[in-house]
Design a protein around this nucleic acid. Sequence first.
DNA 1: ACCTGAACACCGTTCAAGT
DNA 2: ACCTGAACACCGTTCAAGT
Lengths: 198, 198
Amino acid sequence: MRADALQNRERLLAAATTMFSEHGLDVSVGEIADAAGIGRATVFRNFPTKDHLIAAVVSERMSEAAAAAGKLLESETDDAEIVFKLIEDIAGRQQANRALLEVLSEEWFAYPEMQAAHAELLGAVDAVLERGKRAGSVRPEVTSDDVLVLLKGMCMNPAIFDASNATAGLRYLELVRAAITTPAFSRPLGGVPTLPRG
Amino acid sequence: MRADALQNRERLLAAATTMFSEHGLDVSVGEIADAAGIGRATVFRNFPTKDHLIAAVVSERMSEAAAAAGKLLESETDDAEIVFKLIEDIAGRQQANRALLEVLSEEWFAYPEMQAAHAELLGAVDAVLERGKRAGSVRPEVTSDDVLVLLKGMCMNPAIFDASNATAGLRYLELVRAAITTPAFSRPLGGVPTLPRG
DNA sequence: ACCTGAACACCGTTCAAGT
DNA sequence: ACCTGAACACCGTTCAAGT
C-alpha cells in the first residue's frame, strides 16, 4: 500500500469517527470526504459501501465499550452496584458517540467486525450481570440482551436523550435500573420525565 | 373542492395509511402516489411536505390508540392489571402499524395534529396509570412519558420487535412491566431474549 | 381548478479520465 | 497504483405546461 493512500485511509477513518459520533449515522459520505480532505470516490476505494465504513468505525467504539466493561470487572466496585455503573458508562459513551447503539440491529450482524464487537460487548455485560446476580441486586432472568435493548431504546429518542438533555437521560437510566433490579434492591425512580407536554 | 380532487385526496390518505403501517415512515412519496393511482406532484398539492402527510395520517392512528385507552378505562378490567393491558394494546397497535411510535420525537411536536393526538394519548395513559397506582401495582413516580418512551424503544428495534418476532416483543413488554411495577407486585421476567448471538 | 411529466438539488455509488 | 470530477439512479420537492 502506498504511503499517501495509507494516509488518506487514516484521515477518512478519523473524519468518519468524529462525524458519526457528533451527528449519528445519517451524515452523508460527501460531508465525511470533505472533512477528511479527500474526494468522494476515494471513500469507496477504501470501503465498498457506506455501511462497510460504518461497520469499521462503530465496531471499534463498541469494542472499546466492551474493554471498559472488562476493566470495570477488575476494579473494586461493589458487586451490587457494578451493573448500574456499567449502564452509566455505556450511556455516557452513547452521549459522546451517537452512533454507538444506533447500530444495534439485525441488519448489522452481517458485518463480521460488528458481530465480533457485539459478541464482545454481550460477553462483558453478561460477566458484570453475573456479579450483580450473585450480590442479589439483579434479577436472575436478566440477560445482556435485555440490557442492551433497553439502552438502545434510550439512544433512539433524541428528544429524550441527547448530550444537551442530561436529566432526561438520567430518568431513563432509572427506568432501566428498575427493570432489571430485584424487589429487594428496588428504590423509587429518581429524575424527572421530560417528554414535551401538549 | 372538486369531486375528483376529493377522491384523489381520500385515495392518497388510504394509500399512505397502509404503506406507512406496513413499511414505516421510510416509504417514498413516489410509491405512495403509485399505490394511490395519482401523480407524484398531486401528493404535494394536498400536503406541503411528506412530513405533513405523515402527521395527518399517523396522528389519526395515535388518536385511535388514545380512544382505545379511554374505552379500557370504562371496561371492567382489574385495576392492578389495567396498565399492563394498555401496554399490550399499544404494543399490538405498533405491530399492526409500524409508524405509530416511530413518530414519538421532538421534531413532530411542531405539527398541531401530532401534538394534540400525543396529548390525548398521554392523558389517557395517565388516567390508566392512576388506577394502577391506586391499586398499588404501579410505582407512584411513573408517568405516561415513561411508558411511551419505553414503548418507543421497542418499536425502534426491528430485530427485537416486529410482527414476525412476537416472542421478542413479549420479552420487551416484560421488561417494561418490571420497570414500572412496585416491588410488591413484582414477578419474574417471562419470555426469552432473542438478540442474535455472536 | 386541478393534474402531472419534467426538472432540480440532494443522496449513495460507479466509472472514465487523469497523475 | 491511486485519485477524482462527472455521471447514474434514487430521493423529496417545484413548476410549467396541460385539461
